[in-house]
Design a binder for these strands. Structure first.
Lengths: 190, 190
DNA sequence: TATTTAATGTGATGTAGGTCACACAAGGTT
DNA sequence: AACCTTGTGTGACCTACATCACATTAAATA
């Protein structure tokens, strides 16, 4: 599937667009390729855009004062990534985004996103539902952090996103789960 | 301020509605009063509505197999509460909502919400931004859970929501922070 | 105001998971 | 092939927080 088809299929799960509507929306997306390890967004910079991932994997992460990394999100195919706090509140980036693997993405600028939202009601609905699903997903993760120990959080993650098992180094999985890499390593060995 | 003014002021922070648009939207909200301790939504039931809190405080919580409670959200004035997983995915409630204190609310049914969203583009925009803000809020909470110990999570919560300090029993604060009530009790005493 | 019930404080003790240190693999790069 | 960088495994030890038990206080409700 090409970029256009991937995005179209993704949107169709939520709303129906005419060909003209979709083509118009799609015209605002700028293809962008990143290599493994490449920085996409770094702390402190102005953020006025977001990425739709076609293939590969991005990660959104925060580095604390002790240089410890915490991962907010892995974004694989058809996921979106940005610093949404910065994006929605017009603040400087407080988190970083980079590439876990080579990645093809489509870049969408806020200005264009808001323009198309105003012009095409269905796009606004699509983005409302995207946000709703994201909200529910984060609620589940919070419950998992509150309720489960390291082992079940790991099992839950791999069960729901088996693609991460081979794609992402275990130390990054650990940084996502909120556990040390040493503890994670011991988990699946005993 | 009466119910209408509270909702109007809340919406105005995000989008501008004409008087007719607002009155029309408001006509779908059903006032509902709950007493302290009263159950609002309980696990297993069908959820087709959400609540806008005018005053008082609701809590959304999950009870695990060991009967331990984890609190997803406290909803005070101008916050919204429901089981959003159930609401958006047409599933049975997996969490509970009840009242921390007497609470005046406005109830909005999904059917009506979607109807008005279709009819009034601005309402859809309002709800998109509501969801966006919620998403960013949950991201911050996840980072706080990953990055901070019990004490700083507590201090952060009280700094951001000082109204909870007197309104909500400490054991519920503990259940929100993901810490035992005993540990929380010891925190601010040493 | 007496009496239950809910909430909080505090000691003693247990444990999941963190931290440090170093050994070992496995991919990339020259 | 030799090298370096990045990732993983594992032992020894440490600590933040959980759990259990019971005392104390505050807040409903008779």
């Amino acid at each position: 599937m090409n970029a256009q088809e991937i995005l179209r299929t993704h949107i169709k799960k939520t709303v129906d667009l005419t060909d003209e509507q979709f083509d118009y929306f799609f015209s605002f997306f700028k293809p962008k390729f990143f290599k493994k390890g490449q920085v996409v967004i770094s702390e402190g910079e102005q953020v006025d855009h977001e990425y739709f991932v076609l293939d590969g994997c991005l990660k959104t992460f925060y580095i604390n004062d002790n240089l410890k990394m915490h991962i907010l999100q892995f974004a694989t195919g058809t996921w979106w990534a940005s610093d949404y706090n910065a994006l929605y509140n017009n603040e400087k980036a407080s988190v970083n985004v980079d590439c876990v693997s080579d990645a093809h993405t489509l870049c969408l600028y806020s200005e264009d996103r808001e323009k198309v939202c105003r012009e095409i009601h269905e796009i606004e609905r699509f983005l409302r539902w995207r946000s709703n699903r994201g909200y529910v997903g984060l609620q589940k993760r919070i419950l998992s952090l509150l309720n489960n120990n390291a082992r079940s959080r790991y099992e839950e993650l791999i069960a729901q996103h088996p693609e991460l098992y081979n794609l992402v180094p275990k130390q990054l999985i650990a940084a996502y789960l909120g556990v040390s890499r040493e503890t994670l390593s011991r988990l699946y060995h005993f």
